[in-house]
């Protein structure tokens, strides 16, 4: 069940058999959750971390008037809140964007990993650092990239991240999100997202329809986005 997570980790470092067994043993249960459920609320005291097996989730923060900013998307193989292991309460919410299958990993089991498996601990530490790197890239998008470059960058990032966990089919991948969801990722309005997607489509770069992304010109899309995958730390080195 945690195969996608193993693909994600093994893209960055060697993971031994005992380490893989320790991760598998850390899962207390698997749970299926419907779409659109805020499964972790800001401020709530937490004793488990959630590993996404299947589906899409996001971290978000919102304002009193209901405006929501999604700060990171999670794909299969990602821990949505490994950082809750040390933080215990989060400063943001976690939402299922599609029906999701989750592995529930008690913090007690993570404590055991930190005590028995120092290398695996460093790899898990790496993955929270990776989340921070993704957040920095999104900050750059939200603060400085144009609407078209922001959208292009998001598609480039998801193409790379889904590719690692074998969920991209060449330049095509499933992204069962609405334009409202995309607007909340990109800091735009749904109407503006529609306009922006049309521009990307007409320039022959990418099409997004019915939850399906099809990249028509990957190098053109990457150029518009100024996408440099180094922030995803895709090199396999000892950590």
């Amino acid at each position: 069940m945690i195969d996608k997570h193993m693909l994600k980790l093994r893209a960055r470092d060697d993971i031994s058999e005992p380490e893989e067994r320790a991760l598998r043993a850390a899962v207390a249960e698997y749970r299926d959750v419907p779409a659109d459920m805020t499964i972790v609320r800001e401020g709530q005291l937490l004793s488990v971390s959630l590993l996404l097996i299947e589906g899409l989730m996001c971290r978000y923060k919102d304002l009193r008037d209901g405006q929501r900013q999604i700060t990171e998307l999670h794909v299969a193989g990602d821990f949505a809140d490994l950082h809750s292991f040390t933080l215990k309460r989060l400063d943001h919410n976690i939402l299922t964007m599609t029906p999701c299958r989750l592995a529930i990993v008690p913090h007690a089991a993570l404590t055991e990993i930190t005590e028995l498996h120092p290398h695996l601990t460093r790899v898990l530490w790496f993955s929270t650092n990776l989340d921070a790197a993704i957040h920095r890239e999104w900050e750059l998008s939200l603060g400085r990239r144009s609407a078209a470059a922001r959208a292009a960058h998001l598609f480039c990032e998801l193409h790379a991240r889904l590719g690692i966990v074998e969920l991209a089919n060449g330049n095509d991948f499933e992204l069962p999100l609405t334009q409202i969801d995309l607007a909340e990722c990109l800091g735009l309005t749904p109407v503006h997202v529609n306009r922006t997607l049309k521009e990307l489509r007409e320039n022959g770069l990418v099409s997004f329809r019915s939850g399906q992304v099809s990249i028509k010109n990957l190098s053109g899309l990457q150029k518009l986005a100024e996408f440099n995958p180094s922030y995803l730390y895709l090199d396999k080195i000892a950590r």
Binding site: Q179, P190, N194, R195, K198, R209
Partner: peptide
């Protein structure tokens, strides 16, 4: 820039 239809 033309018409952007909303299909959603």
């Amino acid at each position: 820039k033309g018409l952007a239809r909303d299909d959603e």
